[in-house]
Amino acid sequence: MPLKFSVVTGSPDPVYRQIVEQVRVAIAGGVLQPGEQLPSVRALAELLVVNPNTVARAYNDLTGEGALEARPGKGVFVAQRRQVFAPEERLRRLEAAVQTLVKEVALLGFSDEEIQELLQRELQKLKGGEEQKR
């Protein structure tokens, strides 16, 4: 599995959230495929040198949002893709993400077109990653 986790400390982003985001990106980009098994909590904790409860919390959050599924006695796997969020919640998450983006780029002085183009390109990259895997 080419998935490479890394966490940094001293960041405003808690370690568990860094893990959550890396798994999300890996799934969205097709690096992790549905049905694929993730390292055990213990193994990932020892690899990253973090408290096992931190990894467990990340896996828990990802299971809660439907990205992963826990199979008792077997481990944690990438779930088959399905929508677990209610439509309003889905929209709320999209809006929050876009607001963050807008805040970050507000002072950089790019034109709307330039921003949209880059956004388009990144979205394409995500899809490209998925197709390669198939």
Partner: peptide, 22 residues
């Protein structure tokens, strides 16, 4: 690795505390 083991450690290094402490 043994779940009944407890560690109490004092430290000034917040980056390390962040890694290992729960």
């Amino acid at each position: 690795r043994r779940s009944d083991r407890t560690i109490l450690f004092s430290s000034h290094l917040l980056a390390e505390v962040e890694r290992v402490a729960d």
